[in-house]
């Protein structure tokens, strides 16, 4: 088991592109950390630097109490699960799982026992003699997991391991991976572009954008107190409503609606989660609803507030119609951001 520490770790490609700007953070022993962000944000590069598949341009990376900048991937005591599984197509499931152990010169009987143990854990015992091409997507995913856990690594690395699966299987594997990690207690870094995966699996989330870490925090912190407008709009589906507002005389206003209080007089961006706006016939906001999205358990109302687009999340029991409605904002549910930098105030 190990702690991972990054100290000003940076990646610049030979063509001058800075994929990861100097980043520093620490991952605690046994913690499940999810790196999330849009494609090209540098999250995969970050993971690959931790794995040793990509050189670190500057800064220092520690796994456990070792500086591993120049350590070979095989010697970092890590295991990695790839997006396309990267199973060796010509080897059986058992050989795939055991290949890393074989390279460590572990005796064959011990390898067999370990493979068997991993296979039992992952319900793969009947498939040990099959080739990867004879397995379903979910089974391949499990083999990739098996290859990782059989090595007893001090660190698990996941590179979008679920994105090749269909939606139903994805939900199931999400739970399995999380449960397995809890059981083994191995420190894990998980890369995904799917904010639902990030929210549901992570102990802590690291949100990245354009090679920069935007926020590090628990799912709840990231969701409810986003550090920037980018995080606010990236996390959550539908995203947080971001409205142009203005603070004057201690009050924050959007158009002529009073929403919050703020001490300085300045223009600002007002963020409110769709579920934090509730229809209320006596509420202060007048919203013009133009479209209703029926989602079964709840509904989304899309409309405008003073010509600005806004989305409201309402329960299935609430009667809705298009046209003007009145609504109120839940207390303490408003986030304020600087207009220029997008940073939380």
């Amino acid at each position: 088991m190990a702690q991972v520490t990054l100290n000003n770790v940076r990646k610049v490609y030979p063509n001058g592109f800075e994929a990861v700007k100097p980043a520093s953070f620490a991952i605690n022993d046994g913690e499940f950390v999810v790196l999330v962000g849009p494609s090209g944000c540098g999250k995969s590069t970050m993971l690959r630097m931790i794995a040793g598949l990509e050189d670190i341009s500057s800064g220092e990376l520690n796994i456990g109490d070792r500086v591993v900048n120049d350590v070979d991937p095989a010697d970092r005591d890590i295991a990695m699960v790839f997006q396309n599984y990267a199973l060796y197509p010509h080897m059986t499931v058992a050989k795939n799982i055991g290949y890393g152990l074989k390279n460590r010169k572990i005796p064959a009987d011990q390898i067999a026992a370990k493979v068997q143990e991993a296979a039992t854990m992952l319900n793969l015992t009947e498939y040990l003699d099959r080739k990867p091409s004879q397995l379903s997507g979910g089974q391949r995913q499990r083999v990739a997991m098996g290859r990782a856990i059989v090595r007893d690594p001090s660190l698990f690395l996941f590179d979008e391991p679920l994105s090749n699966l269909d939606a139903k299987l994805r939900n199931q594997m999400r739970i399995e991976i999380k449960a397995l990690q809890r059981r083994l207690g191995v420190t894990s870094v998980y890369v995904t572009h799917d904010q639902v995966e990030a929210m549901t699996m992570a102990d802590r989330i690291i949100v990245m954008n354009g090679g920069v870490i935007e926020q590090i925090g628990t799912p709840s912190e990231v969701y409810h107190s986003p550090a920037s407008t980018f995080v606010a709009s990236f996390m959550g589906a539908p995203p947080m409503n971001l409205l142009n507002g203005h603070a004057a005389g201690g009050r924050v206003r959007v158009g002529d609606h009073d929403l919050h209080h703020h001490d300085q007089d300045r223009p600002l961006t007002v963020g409110i989660r769709p579920e934090d706006i509730v229809p209320d016939t006596t509420g202060p906001l007048q919203i013009n609803v133009s479209l209703i999205e029926e989602l079964g358990a709840h509904r989304l109302l899309h409309g405008t507030l003073q010509d600005q687009a806004i989305t409201i999340h309402v329960g299935k029991d609430h009667p809705v119609t298009t046209g003007p409605i009145y609504a109120a904002v839940k207390p303490n549910a408003v986030s304020l951001f600087d207009v220029e930098s997008g940073m939380r105030l």
């Binding site: 690959r48 794995a51 040793g52 598949l53 070979d72 991937p73 095989a74 010697d75 890590i78 295991a79 990695m80 790839f82 997006q83 396309n84 599984y85 990267a86 199973l87 060796y88 197509p89 010509h90 290949y99 890393g100 390279n103 460590r104 290859r147």
Partner: peptide, 25 residues
């Protein structure tokens, strides 16, 4: 690409990767 990466994490050097993975593949 991931195949060589997985092999490197599995501790296979250039010769091993060639003999164990690339040639059979």
């Amino acid at each position: 690409e991931e195949l060589v990466e997985a092999a490197r994490i599995d501790g296979a050097g250039p010769i091993k990767f060639f003999v164990d993975i690339l040639v059979p593949l």
